[in-house]
Each structure stands twice: as C-alpha cells, then as structure tokens.
Design a protein around this nucleic acid. Sequence first.
DNA 1: CTCGAACCTCAACCGAACTTCACCTCAAGG
DNA 2: CCTTGAGGTGAAGTTCGGTTGAGGTTCGAG
Lengths: 147, 147
Amino acid sequence: MHEATLTIGQLADRSGVAPSALRYYERLGLIHAARTGGNQRRYARTELRRVAFIRISQQIGVSLDEIREALDSLPAGRTPTPEDWAALSLAWRDRLDERIRLLGKLRDDLDGCIGCGCLSLQRCTLYNPGDSLAGEGPGARLMLPRD
Amino acid sequence: MHEATLTIGQLADRSGVAPSALRYYERLGLIHAARTGGNQRRYARTELRRVAFIRISQQIGVSLDEIREALDSLPAGRTPTPEDWAALSLAWRDRLDERIRLLGKLRDDLDGCIGCGCLSLQRCTLYNPGDSLAGEGPGARLMLPRD
DNA sequence: CTCGAACCTCAACCGAACTTCACCTCAAGG
DNA sequence: CCTTGAGGTGAAGTTCGGTTGAGGTTCGAG
C-alpha cells in the first residue's frame, strides 16, 4: 500500500472522479499518466492535486479549456510547489469575486423588481447585457453580445 | 407603431433574444404566440415579460425545464399581475442565496488553501462533495453524488 | 497456471440550449 | 408583376463535459 503511483481506479476513488472522466481529462491534456508495459495508466501522486484543482475550478465556473491553459502555466520539469498552486488559485480568485458580485447584484435587482413587480426589459438593471453572466454554461449560447 | 402585438423580429429586438431561440422557447412551451392568417407569430406584449423572466432565471442558473414549470404555475386565464411575477421571483431568491453562499464558502476555502497551498482532497473542505455546487452547468455531469 | 476483476481503445451516444440550413410562403413597395 | 425581406417548417449540426458499450488485454491472488 501507499505505492508511488496510482492506478486509474485508485485515482478515481481518491478523487471522486470517474475513470471515464479521468481518461477524458487526459485526452484534453489536463492530466498525465505513465504507462506500464501492458499499457495501463499509472498516475504520479501529484496528479491527485491536479484533479483537485480541476474540480475546484469547475465549481468556480471555469471551462476545462481554461483550466488546461492554467495547468499548462505550471512550471514544466519540476513538481509544482504549494506556491505554484497558490498562484493558480489566486488567478481564479478574481473570477470568483466577480461571479459573487454579479450574483449579488442580480439578487438586489431581483429584490427591487419584487418590490415593483416590473421585470421590464428596458428600465430594469436586471436586463443589462453588458453586465451579464453570459457564458455561464456551454453550448452554442452566446446571444447577448459579450463585450 | 406601438401595436397591440409584436412580430417575432420585434420581440427579438426588444428582448435581445434571437428569433430562433424564441421559436425554441415556444416549442418547449415557455412562451406563446397567436398566429396571423398567414401563419406568422404575433406576440402579446406580456410575452416580453415572460422572456425577461426566462433570461433572468437563466442567469440565476435555472434550467429551461424548471423555468417552464415556474411559468406554468402562473394563473391561467388572466394576465399575470406584478404580484404574480414577484411570487415567481421570490421562488428563485432562495436558489440565488444558496448559490451565493456556496460560492462565498468556496472563496473562503480557496483563501485558506492559498495560505497552506494544500489543495488536498482529503482534508480540505474545498473538496466536499456533499456541499458541492454540482449541477452547475448542463451536460452529463453529475458525478459527485448530489444528496 | 488460471481466472476474474480491472484496464485498454475507439466510436457512438447523451442532454442542454440553441443555431443553421434548405426550402417554402407571405406582405409590401416600386 | 416582380422582387425583397421577414417569417415559417423540419431536420440536422454544434458545443461541453462527459458516459456507455463492444471487443480485447493485463494484472495479481489463489
């Protein structure tokens, strides 16, 4: 036990992420694995941290593509230090704050509109595209021009 | 000008929602339109408010399916009053608060982890499935069991 | 050595929220 | 009358974040 590397099943159990998702992440270049003679994946324990970072980032609302970019910015060659991870986390911090701010504004506006019952597209700050949370989900969705 | 009804183009312009999306919403039963002799859609002005409600709800993170259910709960037969809309908005209020709360928690935890650089799956409250924002976006995503 | 569990790949599928396309009709202006 | 543009339909395509399935291989306990 406590081997140097993890099988995909072990990584799945420890991270709470399905094996199929881990393979998918690998295809996208988010995580990496060595291979045994028999072509099975063996993960370094540091991959656990990458997976954790991925899932946390998703909760913040970052796309896998952006997460990949972020992970790519980690120093190549050496194992990332806690400071490296902290730097990445800090990068999301602003996004998170912005999301919270926008949702807060949405709530306030909604309160206002509950008061007046308006829901008027024109007057109500609720319906202000320039300020939208657009790009929230995936899909061919972008309709409100995203400045 | 200022006719009693709107064409799909007019509704699209006023709401900022593409005609194709409006037709899609109609198929899903979120909005309704009368038809002219030549089979063209004519929207009552109250549909503007429905569309506004739809877009606002989406920003809060509600699916079209749930939005439809909410809209179905509006009193049939009469034009919804401001109070009717206020009731619907209130229903989303809790969701919004919960989302804000969870994101706030995520931020605090992230700050903690920036301090310690841990990102450890086991210890870190960040990686607590029971408390996840799961179901954030669409897609076959639910992996962390959603209690 | 054998056997079942775990792993492999590749391709196809899912669901959400739309868009795009091909092809057709309708309404108004010149 | 002709054209132009807005509108209509249905089917198919797109993106994201995966899952599922078929068919085959490997690992490790007994």
